[in-house]
């Protein structure tokens, strides 16, 4: 199956249990919000999904590729937007995109074409020769999302991608990623602790203290449920 499958994944930092029996499935074309208060284990799960860490407990499958068995095939199908910015501020917008394309083995005309198309979609074509330092926070984030899609992954992982952005930019980026799921059939996992970024028909996975409390449609009362659940368990 395509999409993202996480099965009984567990992880510990020494004696401290960070994730315990985490299982969920995100089908293609679905926007899944991974919700959890700070310290819930979201970042650890992201590190496992991007193979910054590995674990022997459980199984992670990306677009049908097992992360433990064929990590390179799995990584090739993933696009990641990390919580902390990973752009080179002193390099140009274009150069940042080409660098990333090259890390995925794409070079020459193909890389140029993809980078130009990505910037076109963002309405940023004329900013290609500018240094990233000159872009505002919203543009940088959009660029990171566009960059994560350069190698045409089937799963897009975003770790709190709207941190530090103003409300209008947050909404615009959130819309953009929802469209990517709906129109391009991308599997999206969007980690956040802000329930207003989740729509009623999104899939919501609530993680708390390393365990999954809820996995299902977000519904209209997500905020109340989230607060009640994480508050009760605190």
């Amino acid at each position: 199956m395509t999409g993202l499958r996480v099965e009984s994944v567990g992880f510990s930092y020494g004696a401290k249990r960070a994730l315990d029996g985490v299982s969920f499935v995100v089908p293609p074309g679905r926007f899944c919000a991974l919700l959890g208060p700070n310290g819930a284990g979201k970042s650890t799960l992201f590190a496992l999904l991007t193979r910054l860490f590995t674990t022997r407990e459980g199984r992670i499958e990306v677009a049908g590729h097992d992360m433990a068995g064929s990590p390179r095939a799995a990584l090739a199908r993933i696009g990641v937007v990390f919580q902390q910015p990973t752009l080179d501020l002193d390099l140009t917008v274009r150069r940042n995109l080409l660098y990333f394309a090259a890390l995925h083995g794409i070079s020459g005309r193909e890389a140029e074409t993809r980078a130009a198309a990505a910037l076109d979609r963002l309405g940023m074509a004329e900013r290609a020769p500018e240094k990233v330092r000159n872009l505002n926070g919203g543009h940088r984030r959009r660029m990171e999302i566009a960059r994560a899609l350069l190698h045409r992954p089937s799963v897009l992982l975003l770790d709190e991608p709207t941190v530090g952005l103003d409300a209008a930019t947050r909404a615009a980026i959130n819309d953009h990623v929802h469209r990517l799921a709906a129109e391009d059939g991308l599997t999206v996992l969007w980690a956040t602790h802000l329930t207003d970024e989740v729509r009623a028909d999104d899939q919501a996975v609530i993680l708390h203290k390393g365990r999954i409390l809820v996995d299902g449609p977000a519904g209209a009362d997500l905020t109340d449920r989230f607060l009640t659940l994480t508050g009760e368990m605190a």
Binding site: L52, V80, F82, T86, L103, H104, G105
Partner: peptide
């Protein structure tokens, strides 16, 4: 941290 970000980008590349 700032550099660690770029290292993460590097390490999530599908190359060995």
């Amino acid at each position: 941290d700032r550099e660690m970000g770029s290292m993460r980008l590097l390490l999530t590349s599908p190359l060995p």
